[in-house]
């Protein structure tokens, strides 16, 4: 039986648990034993989906203790001999994974969006050059296959419910902890743009009119998103930034208003089903991904569209039904 270890990022528990899907794609539902390392939290949730859940005996070992976590992973691998070790490609997953891989002298592939096996060898696909090309990569050497996986790329169909065996592990001795958390300020919770089927995104060309975008998003039952430029200008919070250094989204409809379509932005929207772009610049690269390009002023477009979308509704209250 194959053994798959999933690293649970306590800041992104659901996204981490969903990585079980990797095991399923590679080995089939019954073909592997599922292990979770939930040292920092999330062990309860993991317990309902995995066969074994590792916890730290000495209490929570948070994500930022990357050096200690890497040692835990290496020690667990010595004891269990995993075939595959999966990390969520979150900020923390991507800090722990390379340390662990370096300890194990194992190949590590980052930001994977597809996996499979061919002739007994596991291959992984990942975007490179801001998503402008897709590389298929294999690991060499004897170590476990290690990968970090983009959150939300693999969706899990109805996860089977399990009742895991919990295993408390001792954290191997590490030289004096090098990283200490001294302050944590929660950010206001915003709805996750990755969960919306419709996104109305604004960029540098419409930075002053975000309230207007909010209305359009409401009319389309979607959420507002933003380019980096709009975020840097202070028009939108970082949490709704789309792109390479923001969120990778896959809505059914992406309306890009006043967004040029630089590569780092396009990297975030390649999986959108439909794209409507509004931009006075005919040459704007956003056009390369768009189904419709409206050449013109973003504000005029939104106002005109709102008139049309909001008007019929008021009429229907008038009895048209």
């Amino acid at each position: 039986m194959k053994r798959v270890l999933v690293y649970i990022d306590e800041e992104a528990v659901e996204d981490s648990l969903a990585l079980l899907e990797i095991g399923r794609r590679l080995y089939g539902e019954q073909g592997f034993c599922a292990y979770a390392l939930a040292a920092g939290g999330g062990s309860g949730e993991a317990g309902r989906r995995f066969d074994y859940v590792f916890r730290a005996r000495s209490g929570a070992l948070p994500n930022f203790e990357a050096a200690a976590l890497a040692r835990c992973i290496a020690a667990l691998h010595q004891a269990y001999g995993f075939d595959v070790i999966v990390f969520p490609a979150t900020h923390w997953g991507r800090m722990v994974a390379p340390r662990a891989a370096a300890r194990l002298r194992a190949g590590l592939v980052a930001d994977v969006t597809a996996v499979g096996s061919e002739g007994g060898e596991i291959w992984m696909a990942r975007p490179a050059f801001s998503g402008r090309l897709l590389a298929t990569v294999v690991c060499r050497g004897g170590g476990p296959v290690m990968l970090s996986v983009r959150p939300r790329v693999f969706t899990q169909r109805a996860p089977a419910l399990k009742s895991a065996e919990f295993i408390d592990i001792d954290v191997p001795d590490t030289p004096a902890p090098g990283v200490r958390l001294i302050e944590r300020r929660e950010k206001p919770a915003v709805r996750d743009i990755r969960e919306s089927a419709v996104l109305v995104a604004g960029g540098g060309g419409i930075a002053r009119d975000f309230p207007l975008l909010e209305r359009l998003a409401q009319a389309l039952h979607g959420l507002v998103a933003a380019s980096r430029q709009a975020v840097d200008l202070g028009s939108a919070p970082r949490a709704i930034q789309v792109g390479q250094s923001g969120k990778i989204v896959s809505p059914r409809l992406y309306v890009a208003i006043g967004i040029s379509g630089a590569s780092p932005h396009l990297a975030g929207i390649r999986n959108a089903e439909y794209v409507i772009a509004v931009n006075p610049d005919r040459q704007a690269p956003i056009g390369s991904l768009a189904d419709i390009v409206v050449e013109g002023d973003g504000r005029a477009f939104v106002e005109g569209l709102l008139e049309r979308l909001e008007a019929p509704r008021t009429q229907s209250h008038g009895g048209r039904g």
Partner: peptide, 21 residues
Amino acid sequence: LTQVRRIEVDALETKTPLRLR
């Protein structure tokens, strides 16, 4: 420890959008 087997550039495939004013 990793090796690139294949590079695909399909991701560069561009759409031909409908252009409106």
